[in-house]
Design a protein around this nucleic acid. Structure first.
Lengths: 140, 140
DNA sequence: TGCTTATATTATAATCATTCTAATCTATAT
DNA sequence: ATATAGATTAGAATGATTATAATATAAGCA
């Protein structure tokens, strides 16, 4: 039961269980960053894992990984939560046609200067969402 | 049954019903723009209107007003939908402490240039979300 | 005006994502 | 090995939203 995620999990105070290791493998053994909803992940787990993982465990693990800084929650259309394996501060395209998110790295966007302050509050993050849609013909 | 909203509704192909007029009055008879969830609006209706309006009607009306361009849906934390009576393209602060949205007008943010294109797609909107939190002491 | 019909409203049930619960299991420290 | 704190599980509960199907109403027409 050893994996490259065993220590990663343990070092964040998460016991390295079979389920958590499997979920980490699905999420992080990838070349590119991965955007997903809980439902996406649950589907992959179902098709991919030898043994079943309860939906509640998937929720718990994703939320824990988010709290520990290995995932980032993305606020998009309000029907579902999306998560991103790219935890750096960065921007997104949101394709309205496919409802898919695409990373937009900081290098493509000049630094954004906000010339307004809210008293007693400090800025925690500044992120841009670019909504896109098909280019062709008429848009109803 | 005449109201300044009678024609506004009719000109958008919406029959000016008592319920719709009442909802318009609540939403648009205001000095400042108004951010709300369906639940916020339902509460105001309950305390404000002489006669009850069914929750389904509130949902239907808000969605119709959104489709007709009188309201704008805001994508924030994924638990609920928020709507905004300011339908122009503009930005927001999101106060993580209170979960409240604050308008951030374009004049406080320089134009944002995105140096990346997605083939076959055109940009529909570019909006910034600035997350803020209490300034004082320790966070966590 | 009154009638007809397309459209709205309503109460309630259904759905869907998410969270809770309480029983069972397991990683870890002794 | 054993005890126990922490994790997993199935299923129930919750809360927002949408669907349903019966009733009511606005608008067009005689």
């Amino acid at each position: 039961m050893n994996s490259k995620y065993t220590n990663k999990l343990r070092s964040s105070g998460m016991r390295p269980t079979r389920q958590r290791i499997k979920i980490c493998e699905i999420l992080f053994d990838r070349e590119h960053t991965f955007h997903f909803s809980i439902n996406d992940l649950a589907e992959i787990v179902k098709n991919n894992a030898k043994e079943k993982i309860a939906l509640a465990t998937i929720y718990n693990t994703v939320h824990l990984l988010t709290k520990k800084g290995y995932l980032k929650e993305i606020s998009i259309n309000s029907d579902k939560s999306y998560f991103d394996t790219n935890t750096s501060s960065h921007h997104h395209f949101f394709d309205e046609e496919t409802s898919k998110l695409i990373d937009l790295d900081n290098e493509y966007v000049d630094p954004i200067n906000i010339r307004k302050n809210i008293p007693g509050k400090k800025v925690k993050s500044i992120e841009v969402l670019v909504k896109i849609d098909n280019d062709n013909q008429n848009q109803k």
